[in-house]
Nucleic acid binder design. Sequence first.
DNA 1: TCAAGTGTATTAAACTTTTAAGACATTAAG
DNA 2: CTTAATGTCTTAAAAGTTTAATACACTTGA
Lengths: 130, 130
Amino acid sequence: MEFHLASDDGTPIYRQIMTQVQHMIASGRLRPGDQMPSVRALASQLLVNPNTVGRAYKDLEAMGLIEPRQGSGTIVAEGGSPLARSEKRRIIIGRIDALLVEARQLGFSIEEVKNLMDKRDAAMGTKRTA
Amino acid sequence: MEFHLASDDGTPIYRQIMTQVQHMIASGRLRPGDQMPSVRALASQLLVNPNTVGRAYKDLEAMGLIEPRQGSGTIVAEGGSPLARSEKRRIIIGRIDALLVEARQLGFSIEEVKNLMDKRDAAMGTKRTA
DNA sequence: TCAAGTGTATTAAACTTTTAAGACATTAAG
DNA sequence: CTTAATGTCTTAAAAGTTTAATACACTTGA
């Protein structure tokens, strides 16, 4: 399970964790019944305090996305159906808009961005598991 | 000048203000020499403390995006970002990688992302003042 | 039973963010 | 000059975030 905390805009860590889990569930990479990484394991992986992960898990539980099992771990909840295509589209468009604005500010044309995307995608693709 | 603070992910207010201004400059809605809203006026509009806006303006000035004029207001700075091309490239590649990861998680192919990018870029272009 | 791993909880401290009230020098307009 | 508006600064307090060191009850597997 790959997590990455990269946001440099001051977003609290526990919020970033929540967003990651939400998106993983939305995309189907985490499915109902799947085991979540333990609080301590994820904290260790992210080099973060266990309480911070616990905070994220607690809020995700309140949202009904995950279910803690005392003693054993935490699993993805049943009702947590993947987001509708329209919702996924709304999310990705927000990211794209942000990238376009950033690119324009930095002086990159859309063609340059798309070329860079191809290169980066090819580099990432070599690591793909499926 | 329309500002809106909507982010519900715990992002600090002054960061949201900075992002808004950056995007307005990037999109051409704010051009070099334009008057920025005063610290107090923007604070009043956003129902936020003047110090919070001041913090955002101070950081934006440090980035070279705006220039304070003692006594009169604050204007959008001339000239572009002082960053070197290599530095700009490093930044934009980071954004692209994040977008690719997100897109993959949400189930979008790179072709779909590039198509959406073209559409969004065209939509933004119509608002440009050129 | 025993040990290890699990989620949860408490208490405390450090740090960041935001609000608050006020002050100062500078600028523009009357 | 006077007045009002500007950016900037100080001090303080409140709130939120993160880390830290524990502790507890529960579950699993040996």
